[in-house]
Each structure stands twice: as structure tokens, then as C-alpha cells.
Amino acid sequence: MLEIFQYPFMQKALVAAVLISVACGVVGSYVVIKRIVSLSGAISHAAFGGVGMGYFLGVNPVLAAIPFSIVSAMAIGGVRQVAKISEDTAIGILWSVGMAIGVIFINLTPGYAPDLFSYLFGSILTVSNSDLLIMLVLDMIIVAVVYIFRREFLAVSFDEEFSSVTGVHALAIYLLLLALVALSVVVLIKAVGVILLIALFTIPAAIAKQYSYNIRNLMILATVIGIILTTTGLILSYIFDLASGATIVMVLAAAFAISYYLNG
């Protein structure tokens, strides 16, 4: 079976699996403990607007998704401050509006968008070297920011109000965390697609959370779990000739169910 790793596309897919697992393990841990899963879902769907814009402008859709997802993250996170719109409502609006913008941009783009499907459902087997480079750089930014602001992220995730009383700029830290979610979305977009990536955000961290009561260990464990499960999904998708993104999600879900059962 090991011969499948001799193919260059499979090697790249494995590197991609490691890179997405780092983003998911680190940022996903905050997403799960701060309970911003649906908010992260909205950011990921809104990022599709950027993908469409990338097609329209003729730039790498993954790069075009960066400003789009960051702006939508700021919009959702900041809406409470400037308008009487609940975060929940803002999530619902941006979730679909981002997708709609993406679809319209693609409509406006002459010709056919051949790999559109891969941005929706992912295609880890077609990641290019430049995709990997983008993912690597974003991973490094994410890890560096988390390391620098780890005290603030922990304080704000645990008790936002108390943290602001101790002098943490809670809103700024919260928005910074959402910006990291946005960057992680971009890391994941090519491999699993905007629709499926929320499973990668939540499931490794949710499994790890059952075994670790220390945030750093949680992140490391979630990353390792992510690598194991995405690689498993990748191999299964190859063996059974199934869509890679969907297979990875099903492996994650099965692992979560088993872990929950063993812990329950």
C-alpha cells in the first residue's frame, strides 16, 4: 500500500494534510473552547466570495479569499459594537451573502470555472506547490500570533468581561482571534473546501479536549489527531476512489463518535 506515497500528488497531499492539521489544531482549539463554531462556519462560507473574485480578477482564488474572509470575520465580530444586529443574525447573513457574491463573480467570469468544485468540497490531491507555500506561510503566521498572544487569547476565551477588567483589550483580541480563524479558513480551502472545512476546525479539537486540560497540550494533541485522521481519510479515499474532502470528514466524524463512546 505504501507505493501510493511514491506519487508526487500523494506526497503533496500528505504535506497539505500536515499543514491543515496545524491550523486546525491551533485555531480549532480556540474555536471549540470559545464556542465560535458557527461563526467560523460563516467566515468559511463568506470566503467563497473571495474565491469567486479571484476567478473574476484572474488571481489565485486562495489568495483572493484572504482579504474576503478577514473582512467578513471583522464584520461579524464587530457588528455588536456598531449596530443593533446580533452576532447570530450577522452570521446568517454573511454565511449566504459571501457564497452569493462568489457565485455572481463566477457568473461574470467568461468561460468555465473548471476547479470550482474543489473550492466547495476540497481536493487535497490537486494542491499545487504554490498552494502549499501559501498554506505554510499562513501556518507560520498563525502559530507566531498564537504564541505571542497566548495569554490574552486564553483570558478572553475563558472570561471576556473579567479579562477586560484586568486590562486586556478584549475586543481587539477577539477580532485578532477571528482574523486567525479567517486565515485558517484560507489554509483549509483548497484541501477540504468551504463547505466541509468546519468539520476539520471542530472535530480534532473536540476529540483532544476530552483528554487534555492544558491549552498547549490540547493544540498539540488536536494537531496530531488531525494529521492521523486526514491521512487516514486520504488513503481511504484513494483506495475506494471517493472524494477526498468528504472521506476525510467521514473519518473525522467516525473518530469523534468512537472517542465519545470510549469516554462516555
Binding site: 482549539s29 471549540v32 473552547i33 470559545k34 464556542r35 498572544f149 495569554r151 490574552e152 486564553l154 483570558a155 476565551s157 475563558f158 472570561d159 468581561e161 473579567f162 479579562s163 484586568t166 486590562g167 486586556v168 479536549k209 476530552q210 487534555s212 486540560y213 492544558n214 491549552i215 497540550n217 490540547l218
Partner: peptide, 26 residues
């Protein structure tokens, strides 16, 4: 505060929780 609403599995222990009260700044 009146309530602290956190995830039941929140990865923080007693010591670390109290330590957040000593926050000095960025």
C-alpha cells in the same frame, strides 16, 4: 462576576485561572 460562562471542558486549571488575575499587559 455574577456568572462565568465557559465550556465545561475548558482547558484551564485552578492555578492558571487565578493567574489570569495578575495580567500585566501585552
Amino acid at each position: 462576576p455574577q456568572h462565568v460562562n465557559f465550556d465545561p471542558d475548558f482547558p484551564i486549571n485552578v492555578f492558571e485561572t487565578v493567574l489570569t488575575g495578575r495580567y500585566h499587559g501585552l
